[in-house]
Design a protein around this nucleic acid. Structure first.
Length: 434
RNA sequence: GGAGAGGUGGCUGAGUGGUCGAAAGCGGCGGUUUGCUAAACCGUUAAGGGUGUCACAGCCCUUCGGGGGUUCGAAUCCCCCCCUCUCCGCCA
């Protein structure tokens, strides 16, 4: 959510930003509506406050009055004032709700260096690291590898839970756990506090992070008869962890690395390039999340730190990747700037393709404002919203794709990346040897 | 799931219908003292919003877990919800 005052003072800038963000046209129409709503709300607010002031005055005078007759007069006066109140207050509430809804549709501002383009092909490739391996045999995709080595059971997943679900088996399980350990250990070394988060969260927390679990295009599973949803990412729970808090400035930045399951309905995604593990309803993810001081310098620096760690993880895994600076039209509401890593997947498409494996966003104060997470900057009075950032350390399903496909051998087995060997306990996936 | 107790400012904690935005302590900030530090002492210290100012000040409204209600007036009484603690039951 953007700050109301900022929006009112910068209508044109906000409008231009919305156009760059490729939001639907009714959002842009909303901006003028916000101005009107805000003005009408203010008028009502002032009327309500004036009435309340009179009421307080009468109530206090009544309390002080000893003479029963005079006291009675005050009471009658108070009753009269009270009668006029409720309609005004209802009106105020309605305006507040409307304003909040209208503001909620506006995306965050955009980093000046982010590429401006309407759709995802406008994102800019910053660099490519590593060279895709040349195979002297025709590489399989992870679905075939998973089948031949008995690592992934899609049929069983479909039977038990439907399409988009799967069982990991045998060495895939060890690989999954090894990746978690590898990522966790690294992040802890970098000063991140390890967390295992809940996999369900309240609707209000989802909304604070910028999800709309009840919207028409929701990707979120809701749990019937509760106000809970299955989380699509630990970003939700990690960000929500400090909702409504005033954080000691000395503790900033706070860095967390969370482990959670992630659930996504992937509504409307059928038929796209989503074979196998690439787009599934449930996966496990190790996620970074940081709270920084509320300055662009602080969160910008943290954003670079997170990106560097993401790159280090895939470099050490020995998987070629590229870094994308995500363009304005593909940013998503809360992000001020976003970098994606795409890893080389030899079995994807006709002759291999890069596929998204991580994403890191600087959300500035957009999430913190709605979640009400603040700190007191030293030397200033009052409070300021923190900045929040998130970034994928390892999304297990997609990392597994990359490893199986990049490390496959002519004999059908899969080598274990050097850095994972200590965690996995064996050198070759699919073999009996330990 | 059953029974009970409780949720108050950055923290601990008093306050059961009338200047209570709230005692006290801790912490923080400013000052005195001091060679420096500590201690001691004095003072100060909630947030958000409206109005106003060049900027302060000032004035006003809201907030004592959340929401509703009673009342001229609610931290205080009533109802619902959330959360915490204790005991019992159940359970990995």
């Amino acid at each position: 959510m953007l700050d109301l005052k900022f929006v009112l003072d910068n209508i044109e800038l906000v409008e231009a930003n919305c156009r760059n963000r490729n939001v639907s046209s009714h959002v842009i129409e909303n901006i003028q509506a916000i101005r009107e709503t805000a003005e009408r709300r203010k008028a009502v607010l002032q009327a309500v406050e004036e009435t309340r002031r009179k009421q307080n005055e009468i109530a206090q005078a009544t309390g002080r009055e000893k003479d029963p007759a005079k006291r009675n007069e005050f009471v009658e006066e108070g009753k009269r004032l009270k009668q006029g109140m409720s309609a005004q207050e209802e009106e105020l509430k309605a305006f507040d709700a409307q304003l909040k809804e209208q503001l909620g549709t506006l995306p965050n501002l955009t980093h000046p260096d982010a590429p401006i383009a309407p759709t995802e092909d406008g994102s800019i490739e910053l660099r490519r690291v590593g060279t895709p391996r040349k195979f002297d045999f025709k590489p399989k995709d992870h679905v075939e590898i998973g089948k031949s080595l008995d690592l992934i059971d899609f049929g069983g997943g479909a039977k038990v839970s439907g399409t988009g679900f799967y069982f990991l088996k045998n060495d895939a399980v060890l690989l999954d756990l090894a990746l978690q350990q590898f990522a966790m250990s690294k992040l802890v070394k970098y000063g991140f506090t390890p967390i295992v988060t809940p996999d369900l969260a309240r609707v209000s927390i989802l909304e604070g992070i910028g999800f709309n679990p009840r919207g028409a295009e929701t990707q979120v599973y809701s749990v019937e008869n509760t106000d809970l949803c299955l989380i699509g990412t630990a970003e939700i729970t990690l960000g929500g962890m400090h909702a409504d808090e005033i954080i000691d400035e000395a503790k900033l930045p706070m860095k967390y690395v969370g482990l959670s399951h992630c659930f996504r309905t992937e509504a409307g995604a059928a038929g796209r390039a989503s074979r196998g593990l690439y787009r599934v309803h449930q996966f496990t993810k190790v996620e970074m999340f940081a709270f920084t001081q509320g300055t662009l310098e602080a969160s910008g620096a943290m954003h670079q730190e997170i990106l560097k760690i993401e790159e280090e993880i895939f470099s050490e895994l020995g998987i070629p990747y590229l870094v994308l600076d995500i363009c304005s039209g593909d940013l998503g509401g809360p992000a001020y700037r976003k970098f994606d890593l795409e890893a080389w997947m030899p079995g994807r498409g006709e002759a291999g393709e890069y596929g998204e494996v991580t994403s890191t966003s600087d959300c500035t104060d957009y999430q913190a404002r709605r979640l009400n997470i603040r700190y007191k900057p030293s030397g200033q009075k009052g409070t300021k919203f923190v900045h929040t950032l998130n970034g994928t350390a390892v999304a297990l399903s997609r990392a597994i794709i990359a490893i199986l496909e990049n490390y496959q051998r002519a004999d059908g087995l899969v080598d274990v990346p050097e850095v994972l060997k200590p965690y996995l306990g064996k050198d070759v996936i699919g073999s009996l040897a330990h």
